[in-house]
Write a protein that binds this DNA or RNA. Sequence first.
DNA 1: CACCCTCGCGCC
DNA 2: AAATGGCGCGAGGGTG
Length: 565
Amino acid sequence: MQAIAGQEEDDDFAIAFSGETLRGLKFAEFVHEVRRLEAEHAPRWVFPSVERAYPALIKAGVRVRRCHDLALTEGLLLAHEGRPQESRSLHGALARANGQEAPADEPPPWAEDDQPTLFETRGPRLPAGVTVVEAARRVLAEQEKRVALAEHPERLRLLFAAESASALAAAEMSADGLPWRADLHLELLADQLGPRVPAGQRPKRLVELAAKISDAFGGRPVNPDAPASVVRALGREGIEVTSARKYLLRDIDHPAVPPLLEYKELARLHSANGWTWLDEWVHDGRFRPHYIVGGVVSGRWASRGGGALQIPKVLRTCVRADPGWKLVVADAAQLEPRVLTALSGDRELAEVAAATDLYASLAEAMFSGVRRVPVPAWDDRDDRDRAKIAMLSAMYGGTSGEAGPLLSLLRNRFPDAVSYVERAAQAGERGERVRSRLGRTSPAPSEAWRALTGGFTEDEAAETKARQASRGWGRFTRNFVVQASAADMTAVLLATLRGKLPSPAHLVFFQHDEVLVHTPAEFADEVSQSIVDSMAEAARMLFGAACPVRFPLHIAAVDTYADAK
DNA sequence: CACCCTCGCGCC
DNA sequence: AAATGGCGCGAGGGTG
């Protein structure tokens, strides 16, 4: 069963279901109808945009199980068809369906200066006389035609369902919020930075460290917040560095370095997650960031405001379950190399991936039987680290340091897996697009890139620049096939899990390969099992029942996020 | 003053 | 010698 829901104009809403269309509904009536139809029929709701429409429904106390997000699917389809820059909104898609020029997209809701009303009412309107239901129906039919033209329509349909469900999950997570103990956060800030100071001022501990740094430079004032100032100060001491980055400073023997490193760490805490952040982002014991589903080209999520996907490890102690509840934290162990294994069908590597610690197992496969020559540079790293470098180099395109020889070894041992990413890299170097397992498609390189790489030239410098640009895009497409397929998998995982969770357990956080569920303690085991089952289903839906690759999870039911390892 | 860029670093 | 992918954010510092 399918229901179409959208905002007609200004304050009027419409719903089409089972041959009937209700028009001119006021918001309260609309909410009532959505709730009723959801309870009686649990239809697949077709929304012009979940991101724009669903938060208002959640706020009104209504949640739905299934949906089709026309904007997200339009974006995926456009990318698949090689025109990712075109409008994905309902009016844009309708114009295209009618063979007209699509109007420009309106800004996304998170980029708007003032609060939108209930649903989005601004931006280009549908043509006069066209209702939102008619437009949605037309675009939906058009999408189905376009999907049918794809090489793997069934994979795209799975992607659409997973991405649409992810959009529901994202809106719900924003509304529910991540449990966050502001009191513990405040304690931690006072502990490390000193008493609270007004915004724009340096906390006591940073003032002390800045003084120490200046003293170590002979009393001349140095601004540790300004990298150039630090570089100049070191220069005066006869130490030449190209920047003030942490990894460079670490190797310098100078009395200013220890306080500088400590300053950087605390200044980061202060500016990124200090009192200002707490005031702005944590209310009523919840951190409520805004997630953007598919906000990254590879299909990963992005977030706007609050740095939701960069919660520093030191603050995870503030993420605590409510009394009587638990946080079930699950992360997919080494997801990307496993995805590569499944994508490439490398049977040898699949055997390696049977182990929970893939890199340790890979080290065994790569280095047992290799006579160990005592090379000094190799002695401070163990085999597991080397195996990891080899694998990451395959997935990221790294060649520096010892990555080159290690990658060669990996290629000899696992030619199927390595050639999979190398073919993707070569396609990128030629300016071709590549696809994930379910059909997420990389954008084509820019015109500037084509101009740079396309010409023939005698000029050696230009030749070098062209090759650099070409290789750079190859690294992007090489990584894209893995990262985007991992995003496919976690989208399916999220969609499946969302449907399995026992009420009132609910998702509260998702980050690339990790989910957090907030649940009454007595359901924690059931929730853990739901996550395991969802992962298994996701693997089967992406790669088929015969795929031998294991996708193990680290799962823990904890009181605080900091306790999950 | 707004705007835009680079740097540096947090996360995966 | 070099040339490891994807992000968001705040501060500094320059420009108009």
